[in-house]
Every structure is written in C-alpha cells, then in structure tokens.
Write a protein that binds this DNA or RNA. Structure first.
Lengths: 214, 214
DNA sequence: GACAGAACCGAACGGTCGTACTATTTTGGA
DNA sequence: TCCAAAATAGTACGACCGTTCGGTTCTGTC
C-alpha cells in the first residue's frame, strides 16, 4: 500500500483530503440517484468506500451538508456536460436541439445509474423545506431559464415564431423530459427514447416560424 | 364516549377493525404523499392516530403490506374520482378532456396534501424492485391505457386524426401532468395550471381531425 | 527528521426503525 | 349474560440512524 504511486505533483495537486472528499461525493451521487437522498446513509457510504463512518462524516459537518455538496457536484457536472457543450452549437434552433439532446443523454449517463438527481430530488423534496430543497429549486430554475433563453434566441434569429411563449416552451420541454424518465426508468419502456424524440419534434414543429415549417 | 351514536346498522356495518383500518389507511395516504413512502413510519402514524405502534401494526403484517394497501386505496379513489366520472362524458374528444381535467383536479385534491401518490412513488421506487413497485407500474399502465383508449375512441368518432398514435398521445399527456406537478409543487409556480392547460390544448389541436381544427 | 495540523478510526451515545411476543380490553353473536 | 374472537396495548429486541469525542496515523513543510 505504502508504495502506491502518488499522483504526479502537477498543477497544485489536490490535497489528500480533497481527493477523498471528491471520491466520496462521486460515489454518493451515484448512490443517491438510486436509493434517494433520504435513503442515502452515511454508514452505507462508508462501507462502500471502505472508510469509517466517523472518518467520512468529518468531511461534512452534517448529513444535510453532504446532501447539498452532492447536489452541487451534480449541478456542476450538468453544466459541464449539457449546457456548456450545447452553447457551442449555432444560435437558434440548433442550439435548442443540442440542449435537449444532451439533456436526454445526461439523464441516462452511466455515472448516474439512477437518473438525473434533480428529477429524483424534485419529487422527494417537494414538501420538505430547507436549504437542500432551495438549492434544487434554484438549479431547476436556472435550467428552465437556460432553455427559455435558447428559445428566445431562436425567436430573434427568426427560427421560431415571433409570438412563441418561451417560458411555456421550456415548461413543455421539462414535461417531455419528465415523461422520458418516467417511461424509461419506471415503466422500462424500450420506446421511451423514441417517444421523447417524437414529442420534442412535435413541440418544435409547433414553434417554428411560418417560413421554416417542414 | 360510550354514548357515541353507532353508525346505523344499515348494510352490514363494517366491523370495528375495518373502520380503524380504513381510518389508518386514509391518514397514511395523506402522510405518504407528503413525506414519501419510505419516510412513512409506523410510529409516526400511530402517534397521529393516538394508537399504539403494535395495535396499528397488527392490521397489516408488515410495512410493505401497509404500503401496498395505501396504494390500493389510492388506486381505488383515483378510479372513483377520475375515471368513472369521466366515462359519463360523451365519447370522443369530450371524454378525453374530462379525463385530463379530472386528473389535474385529482392531483391537487385536498385529501392528497402531497399530490398524487403514484407520481411520488414513480420516482421514489423506480429503482427499488418489489411488489410495491410492481403495483405502481401496473396502476400507471392501466391509467395510460385508459388515456390511450379514450383517444382511440376519439379517433373512431372522427374527432381525432385517423393516423394519430394514441399511445404517444397518452405518453404526452403524462408528460404534461408530470410537468404540472413539477411546476406547482416544487417550483410553486402560480401559472402551473395555465401552463398545463395551454400544453394540453396544443397537444389536442395537433391531434384533431382536419375537419375539426379551430 | 521533527513537528503541527489534517485525515482518519473505533467506540459509544441517544434515538428511532420494523417486528415479535404476550397481556388486556373491547366487540358482537348465541 | 356469557364468552370466544377480534382489536388494541405494552414491552422488548436487534439493527441502524446521525452525531460526538478522544486517540491514532498520515502528510506536507521547515
């Protein structure tokens, strides 16, 4: 054990504590999506990572803080793998498409065995006030704003109808995504992906500018 | 207390046990929608109803059985207050509308302070196999079939396009409902109801038979 | 190589969980 | 009115929960 190779000291190597902290959060994220944020247990987490409960606990001063950190990591990852890449797509309809496509992919990313943590948290925490719920709401709001913003750009680019309600568009996208998770994770419907694509195309078709109808 | 009037002995009065059993389930249903099925606790339930844990527990032989009974009661209520009344609406588009309207109303029924239990259970149990999950899936499948069936009738009545994909229609309705719960319960969006109505109208408009467009 | 601080462990706390057993009370038909 | 059956209470168990605390081991800097 003692001979294990250290990570080369490039770029201000993260201290030991930060490393394990990161490892804890990464594993906890996967776990939380499967068994829920409330069902997530420090003991279970410690066992999985072959640590002591107390050693793990020391990294966060409470379970609530742990939950918050998990969600923050998830939020960061989502921005990194959904929003940022989509922003490199051309303004207008292509970017809206990119956002949606990458979002669906994110939902079933292998690092999220139980699906998007925010979806799960949405229904788990909707009646439990507190900072965790607040963060989820904030994050979802940001996401909806991103969607609506992309739609607004598509309007100004002349891709979408000028009178399109962009907030409604974002809301409808959210519905398609929720139905997708519902169909794929709970109902195990193999056509879930096709259903989501079909619904999205219909929504898009209804929003296109008159000259762009296909 | 002893002078309390008994329910008049009409129609094979439910035995004492069945009464309390019913009372337990009714209260448990409301509780489960708020704090979740996993978070639901026998002790908490007993306290609320001023019973002993063991006395309450004796009615169900396990917590899992209790959860199942809760869901069965919810399923029954949903049929009673959504499906059955809607069946008295005229075949075709009106019935589809009635189903959807009553469904939204059911979501925010006062007896379900935390919203539709199946919605909550969908995301809470999607990764936890067992009879409870199975029942939820079965129930949701029945509901989707009901929706799709009503749409099929609307097709054969000439209200909807002949080439409408009725399963897709049901799926899209589900999405609108999920987005409604999401917007109203989590985001506390006062426009949630209007958003759902708007999305439903758009979906309906896209499905109407050519001669019926408005 | 010493030393301060960070990281981690082990044991323990009070509490609650679901469940099992045994009494006790209540119910309702003969 | 009596009495078996049904309903409820009481108590206890073992498991696990989040959290605390004092001690041990490791890390990284001078």
């Amino acid at each position: 054990m003692a001979t294990a190779n250290r990570a080369p000291a490039r770029a201000r190597a993260a201290s030991k504590g930060e490393q394990t902290r990161e490892a804890i959060l990464a594993h906890a994220l996967g776990l939380a999506t499967r068994i829920g944020f409330e069902g997530l247990t420090i003991g279970r987490l410690a066992d999985d990572l072959k640590m002591s409960k107390s050693g793990l606990f020391a990294h966060f001063r409470s379970k609530e803080a742990l939950q918050l950190e998990i969600l923050k990591m998830a939020g960061g990852r989502m921005i990194e793998s959904v929003v940022k890449p989509a922003l490199s797509a051309p303004r207008g309809e292509p970017r809206v498409r990119a956002l949606f496509e990458r979002w669906l992919a994110w939902e079933q990313s292998p690092s999220l065995p139980g699906g998007c943590p925010f979806m799960a948290a949405s229904f788990e925490l909707d009646d439990r006030p507190g900072p965790v719920r607040d963060y989820v709401v904030q994050n979802l709001r940001d996401w909806m704003d991103t969607l609506a913003g992309a739609a607004r750009i598509a309007v100004s680019e002349g891709h979408f109808r000028a009178d399109l309600d962009c907030e409604q568009f974002a809301h409808d996208c959210q519905g398609i995504g929720l139905a997708f998770v519902h169909a794929s994770r709970l109902m195990r419907d193999p056509k879930a992906r096709a259903r989501a694509a079909s619904a999205f195309e219909a929504l898009l078709a209804a929003g296109l500018a008159p000259g762009r109808r296909r």
